[in-house]
Design a protein around this nucleic acid. Sequence first.
DNA 1: CTGAAAGCGCTAACAC
DNA 2: GTGTTAGCGCTTTCAG
Lengths: 341, 341
Amino acid sequence: MTVPPRRPLTLRDVSEASGVSEMTVSRVLRDKGDVSEATRARVKAAAKRLGYVPNRIAGSLASSRVNLVAVVIPSLKNMVFPEVLSGISETLAGTGLQPVVGVTDYLPEREEEVLFEMLSWRPSGVIVAGLEHSEASRAMLVRAGCPVVEIMDTDGDPIDACVGISHRRAGRTMAEAILEQGYRRIGFLGTKMPLDHRARKRFEGFTATLARAGIEIADREFYSGGSALAKGREMTRTLMARSPDLDFLYYSNDMIGAGGVLELAAQGVEVPGRVGLAGFNGVELLDGLPRQLATMDACRREIGQRAAAIVAGRVTDPDLARAATEELTPRLAWGDTLRRR
Amino acid sequence: MTVPPRRPLTLRDVSEASGVSEMTVSRVLRDKGDVSEATRARVKAAAKRLGYVPNRIAGSLASSRVNLVAVVIPSLKNMVFPEVLSGISETLAGTGLQPVVGVTDYLPEREEEVLFEMLSWRPSGVIVAGLEHSEASRAMLVRAGCPVVEIMDTDGDPIDACVGISHRRAGRTMAEAILEQGYRRIGFLGTKMPLDHRARKRFEGFTATLARAGIEIADREFYSGGSALAKGREMTRTLMARSPDLDFLYYSNDMIGAGGVLELAAQGVEVPGRVGLAGFNGVELLDGLPRQLATMDACRREIGQRAAAIVAGRVTDPDLARAATEELTPRLAWGDTLRRR
DNA sequence: CTGAAAGCGCTAACAC
DNA sequence: GTGTTAGCGCTTTCAG
């Protein structure tokens, strides 16, 4: 049996099925303007019976309103950005806005492509990770004609709005805590990613503070690839073998830091008596380790929520204050690998 | 100083700036049709100079082609779906297709809303987690007019294409391994989520296999909320206190299972001699724990990649084979918490 | 409260 | 190779 090749339904179909003009059908379906209860009911019934799904492409073209929000992030391979995205998604859920995700792999040229692609949908807002962009990307964002929220990081010049933490300050705060606890032979374990500006800024804030106290990083170890416990163990082993006199290890993220906790436990090294440890991110799913790693919360979910709220707010009321920077303050979680006095 | 309210640029602007007709400009910008090298260069230069970003809304309406792929998933709060999404995103990256993400929170009614929303963009494909949908959702998917790939799970009737693993079989396989190793007093620790059909199916496959050997789950413990090490520790403590004679603990995911590993280590319980353990998911970031938890890989990234490839393939060639189910085989990772003979 | 006309910015299908 | 003419399916605007 041959089914008539069902082209997608249009307003006209609903109009014919209900005997109401297209225009009025459109009004009912968008809850716009006054329509009598009777017609409203007929239209709704017809739309439902037919299984009509409106065509937003046509709608958006006609109204020049788009319910899409572009979200541009460097990666989905650890929990950081999914958590941000989750915050965005839940905050957007009530507003009728939809996130569209683009992943850049930390590559500026990919960011350019992804932005171009997304802006071609004329989204209602752009949420983009980081303050560092290629000139072309920056130009696109400046001329995007919609709110632009740069997230994660506040150390730099935002194009428009900005929500994040100061990674430089986070590095500084951790360095101060470490020094204050009397550690002096400090090792750093981190990622080999020149394009991860936030990791770089934390490192800069960290070393600058040490320098002010006349101290330099005593040794360091870098890696590439995903952050995982095993990687953290391996790096810790390597570093401690090479520089056995280190009394503190600062990790660029909690996953490898947790690996350090496990490795030192396995080696029977006293923590934090002999060696202190700290990470970064506040990965709560690691609570429950034998020792709780000292860390700093990066406020990921909240950043997502606030960024989404800014976009949603401006969509509702375009006259809202522009270009504000919301700097959140990550709190230091001492855990039990840092404090020794 | 007043800037002229820069309306977004149109093809016409590029046309005027380059002295080439709109149509030819359009051709150049889409790399379609034959255009002389000279005009092509002039158009490209003009577009670049102006910073022209095409309007895909108009383009899609005119061509009835949309480069969006709807991705509908239940959650972003653990690594499972971000990994799938990452697989989708990387496979789509080369194809010009863009993922649009919708999160349902495991609620059928949210799934309905999200699907309606997404289908209104007339996407080139839909990738949706799970085979269980409300009647309305199913109806929408059937009539979507684009490839529909249901992912994660193959136990059920797919609407169109399907990529995943059999969770029932995964539960069965694990049960067989556990029985074969001689365990008999088996406890289950899992999530209290009636709407997580995959967890339910694993549990069903698991208990059915035990039943065939005349064995019942000896005790069980459920929780709600995020999966985390601490939760796993706590549940393990509770369960072992209540039923100290258990000789095996089967966890519904690796995070809580890893908590179990840590808790039993802390209690000095011999693993797997006294108690064996297994989880589910193959969360590689947990490699590095004192003992490697037995688990089964859910093939998350690969599922995402294959689903995206199916969509991309059908977009390129609409006559491609339809409605195939790709069942992947999760491999059992024995780790060192399961084998005792 | 309802309807008719005119586009939104682009591309398909033809002419030239 | 390049230009012209009609729409895509909806919403805006204005008239009744």
